[in-house]
Design a protein around this nucleic acid. Structure first.
Lengths: 134, 134
DNA sequence: CCTTGACTTGGAGTCGACTCCAGGTGTTAC
DNA sequence: GTAACACCTGGAGTCGACTCCAAGTCAAGG
């Protein structure tokens, strides 16, 4: 699969895909005879994984480290696990923060709904008044 | 309350507090006779709100717009509500993405736990073997 | 053969959100 | 009265994560 297709498939720009590879966030993709990238199943799975992790805000630097460790085989399995665990906790913490914000937003929106309703009533009222005046 | 105390209270740097004010993310804070900021209850509440929204990743630009509309009084209440509703949806969507990632991380961590267990067993085994050899 | 279009590279530019700095003023402690 | 310290301003610098660009290569169609 050429880079354009992979880009399409994941909704990641060509530039970003090349950038990820350049900084070691995804391992070097195989090339065809003329030097063009040819994404194989395994490459696509990595891209998918990285996309998923990035969409949740895991920092590139950490992911580079993790990917590097995976390349080193089973020897670093313990470290890999620890990285994931740490990131999992950070992610859960961020989500909790966001949940708080979500609750506040929901509350505010509700307050606004009421305020708008009152305002509309007031308008209706003044329209009535306007009608009376006419 | 002086800026240092506000900074302490919210865990936001002096620079960031001044920066937020400068770009209109929080309304101009009252000054004492010698030109120094004096945060009052209302200022603190705004800072708290902004801190909360920022911690959930709401973009500064949007918050500036919202804050500006609030300054304009009840006239823009409808627009304000729409902004909050839109941001609420975006936030919920981000959280859903993050939940997916969290699930994947949890799954991977579990797999790692098992892998590590197996590896430890293998080590124990080879230690036994080592003992046998000795 | 020549153009068109998808790909390549290395390097530079951009964007959001801070963060730092230099040079100045005000307040307090000795 | 001077040193130390908290504060002020405008502007520059940094950082993470892309995003864009120029100049070149390659394959296919007319």
């Amino acid at each position: 699969m050429k880079i354009a297709e992979a880009s399409e498939r994941f909704g990641i720009s060509l530039d970003t895909l090349r950038y990820y590879e350049r900084i070691g966030l995804i391992r070097p993709v195989n090339r065809n005879e003329s030097g063009m990238r040819d994404y194989k199943e395994l490459d696509l799975r990595w891209v998918d994984f990285i996309k998923c992790m990035r969409s949740a805000g895991l920092p590139i630097e950490v992911l580079i480290e993790y990917v590097g460790l995976v390349q080193q085989g089973d020897r670093m399995i313990e470290t890999r696990k620890e990285i994931l665990k740490e990131q999992r906790e950070l992610l859960a913490a961020r989500m909790q923060e966001m949940q708080k914000t979500l609750d506040i937003l929901d509350h505010k929106i509700e307050v606004y709904e009421n305020a708008v309703l009152k305002k509309e009533k007031a308008i209706v009222q003044s329209e009535d008044q306007a009608l009376e005046i006419i």
